[in-house]
Design a protein around this nucleic acid. Structure first.
Lengths: 147, 147, 147, 147
DNA sequence: GTGGTCTAGACCACG
DNA sequence: GTGGTCTAGACCACG
């Protein structure tokens, strides 16, 4: 069974690319799509799929390792660490709410009506390729670039 | 009548502060809350309300002037330019959809259910102080810091 | 009063340059030469003094910040953190003993006599420019490249 | 008579393992402990004694052969080459002084007093199992892992 | 001036 | 194949 990770990089957002990558790995771990022992895409694979420089991926992975989310094994690859959930349930809620708030503020400033906002959110939720239901063996993931 | 501008600055987001400010002014103009001739908060007022460095506000206003959104009048202040809508209707839609997409991707990665996402968005839309219905005379705005 | 930091980079050693830099900053903090609030050489200054690439210094400083040893202030510079001694007295002893052991093993393999080893160590201790006695105000340091 | 080679591998040092092994063989040859015709530990023996990957030992031995220090005899093992002293007396002095300098710099940065440094060096010299006085027949060596 | 991010690409260690 | 380090240099944010 092939698992797909949807990585969404928005270059125009101003958020450093390596941080966008870090956040999304953490979200996948927090959500349970990525689990202990799973192998992440290799640096080169991820870099080419997202058309970013390999050193940018190296930076993201290095920071994720320092955060205890992943482990790098020399010559082997990058794996989800056994240490911990990347972020707590509470931080998860905070992250979601932060994005929701930004959307709400923006919509209000643009004077877009709430029903219209809800409609657009629904459409985007449908458009995102849902991650497959996880099975029980550690797997290697392929990348679905999103931009 | 006193109008309030809700400025939402998220320092942790990685987006440059001056760009966050620029975007929000543009959104207010696009949405019709800010209209031609309206006076924006002074640099000092905005800087102290948002506790950012005044030079950051200067940069935002300078760039907004270059974009034709506002005009600086020496000794008077900053005013919404007569030249144009800050962003087109289409750009508006793009901006909204971009935020919605980011939310959708994030929620999917976190395996938050769509209904839960919609609930959170509704809550945040209600929480945002709705901008008042515009009247017809140019006004000066006060700032409601949001962070 | 001008303070000097003696940085010793050995490219032939195989130890990554950024790690050599990190260790030496930690040693200076542990030894009390660098104290809370002291400003480190700027990235560019250190890079040019040691003729390494600025990105290498960036990496060393970034890791040191993550370790709580220094703080980067945007537009201001790098400063010794108030948080903690960089390494404990015990780690200090470990570090010293590790170097001493390596020297001892090497000398034994080379069949250099212990008195000769002691003589060479004494000479090298005298050759190192001793760090000046610290005074009481935070200072900026200049770099003495050593290689 | 059984001879013992003390191999000191420090994984944390950042120096590639194969290079640490190469250096120490060279030092033993330079010091006269290993002499022409002596048989080195087999790849498997050395790998398991030091718990490193056999390919790492292969790399070290291959490079040592390229440097003319040893010869691999198919099906027989690795032997000290007749060609030359692995390093000259001068290189020996350079190697020793390099280690001594690193120790001196480190101690100075840690503000450890010279007498204390000398004490620690003496202790470590005593702690190292001195290599036995060489006799005159080629011998096979066993390994004393040091870490 | 200061730090921060990123690209393009080389070279190396480990398996 | 995998990850790790480093250079050279561009461009940006902040003060």
């Amino acid at each position: 069974m092939i698992h797909r990770l949807h990585f969404q990089i928005d270059e125009r957002s101003g958020v450093p690319v390596y941080r966008q990558m870090m956040d999304q790995v953490k979200y996948y771990v927090a959500g349970g799509t990525l689990r202990q022992g799973d192998q992440l895409p290799s640096i080169r694979e991820l870099a080419s799929a997202l058309t970013v420089n390999p050193t940018t991926v190296v930076k993201a992975y290095t920071e994720l390792e320092r955060d205890g989310v992943i482990e790098m094994r020399h010559g082997k690859g990058a794996f989800v660490s056994g240490r911990a959930k990347a972020i707590t349930r509470e931080e998860q809620e905070v992250a979601l709410r932060r994005s929701a708030k930004q959307l709400a503020v923006e919509a209000t400033q643009l004077q877009v009506t709430p029903p219209r906002v809800i409609t657009v959110v629904r459409e985007e939720l449908n458009a995102v390729n849902p991650s497959p239901s996880a099975d029980e063996t550690p797997v290697k993931f392929t990348v679905v670039p999103g931009r």
